[in-house]
Each structure stands twice: as C-alpha cells, then as structure tokens.
Design a protein around this nucleic acid. Structure first.
Lengths: 119, 119
DNA sequence: GCGATTGTCAACCATCTGGTTGAACAAGGT
DNA sequence: ACCTTGTTCAACCAGATGGTTGACAATCGC
C-alpha cells in the first residue's frame, strides 16, 4: 500500500479515525483529548494518529509535553478528485446508455407507425 | 469494519480495486476481462470483486457462464458526502481563524496609531 | 452426454492491523 | 533533583487481507 491515495483511503476506512478527523475539523486537539471519548488505550489512539499522519491527513507539532494534532484538510481533495473523476465518467456513460435505450424505444415504436417509409 | 462507509473506503484503499472501478466506469466487464491486465490469478481478482460487491460498489448478474460486473456508482456519493462535509467544516474553521489572525494583526497595528484613544 | 470455458469455493500461507501491557522518553512544576 | 503529565516505543496477540494452488460448479457448443 505504497501510494498516498491508498493510505488516505485506508486511513479513513476506520470509524474511530474518521471520527477523529471529524472532531479535528473543529479545533486542534492533544492526543489525550482525542482519546477521551473512545474506550481504548492511549497507545491505541497514538497508533491511529500515526496512520493519519502517514496518510498526510494530520500533522503534529510540539507544545511542552503535549503534541497538538492538526488536520491537513487539503489531502481530502485528493480523494474527492479521484472519486468525482470516475463518478462523472460513470454518469456520462449511463447518460449515453439512457439515450441508446431511448433510441431503441423509438425503434420499437416508430416502425409500427411509419411502416412504409424505408428502402 | 461493519458499516458501509468503512467498507467502501477500505475497498478503494487497494490500487488494483481502484483500477477495476476506474475501468468499470467505461463499460461492464466479465471477471476474465477484468483480470487480464493484472499479474495475479483469476481467484485473486474474484476475491477483489467480492470486496467491491460487499461494499456495494459493484453488482454481478449472470450471462451464460459469464458473470458481468457492473459498477454501482451511486455508492461513491456516500464518500463524497462524508468528505465534503468535513472538508467544508475545516475550511470554515480556517476562514474564521484567518479573520481572527487578521483582527490580531489589526490589534497589533492599531494601538500604535491611536495610542491615546482609550480610557 | 462430453469437453471446453468461465468463474467460485476451500485450504493454506505471509503479512498487516488494531488492540493490549509495560517500559521509556520529554518537558514542566515544585 | 524529583515527581507528574503527556506521549511514544517495543513486544506480543488475534483476526483480517491478499495472494497462492487445487478441486468443483455451471453453462455453452458440439
């Protein structure tokens, strides 16, 4: 799982990590603050943060003993770019398909009405 | 990893699966067709498809021995919804932060210019 | 019916993941 | 100097993941 896009998707595949990201949109938080709502050890939270950091989703600075965690929201654009690109393609294809189906519908209805027009 | 959102993110965390999704935006494909570009066994591809199917990203029907794979692009909206929601929140926060910083900048510059105005 | 084609199921394996606990490190308060 | 607070590192464990191979199911063409 080398590339960043994979790491970002994988990072957000975990509900706890998604919740952390959600909370970080409001304000920066220390590891302890982030850990508080979850029923897991601080070390587990620290690991989650490492995953988010490796994905480029958060950064950590230093403030005395504390390590405030900061959301790097631009990385989310990576994902939206990918998703939207292919969603759009799929939509276009379905639109084409719909028009083909509409045309077939016309073919099925048309001939009975204009039977003598061809050749 | 129970919920669908997690499954969708996890499904797209794999480059091979992302590539499959990308190719499926163009047209439906059989398992064999999908497997062709990758240097892995057909069984491995079949497993990948199961992951995508469990995430609701593709569906498979039956056509003789073949099992055409069809992209269900609407599921992508689930992700965009999540991402955009929090990206927007983060943006708003940064906007507020910027205006706070601008205000602080004003405070730092203002007083030197209007030193005698207070009390 | 028989063989070829297309795909899945089952068992196995190595590696990754998310959790644990216990020890260690870093910096501030006293 | 020492203790407390905040966080990470290391070792370990159970379960998931992505790959393999071998057997089997389903369906067409003959």
């Amino acid at each position: 799982m080398a590339d960043q896009l994979s790491r970002v998707f994988a990072a957000l595949a975990d509900p706890t990590r998604r919740d952390m990201v959600a909370r970080l949109t409001g304000a920066d938080h220390t590891v302890g603050e982030l850990a508080e709502p979850y029923d897991v050890s601080l070390q587990a939270v620290s690991k989650h943060l490492k995953v988010l950091e490796d994905a480029g989703l958060v950064s950590r600075t230093r403030d005395a003993q504390r390590r405030p965690v900061h959301l790097e929201a631009e990385v989310l654009d990576l994902m939206t770019a990918w998703i939207e690109r292919y969603r759009r393609r799929a939509e276009e294809r379905f639109a084409r398909l719909d028009s083909v189906l509409a045309a077939m519908q016309d073919d099925a209805e048309g001939p009975t009405q204009q039977e003598g027009t061809a050749s």
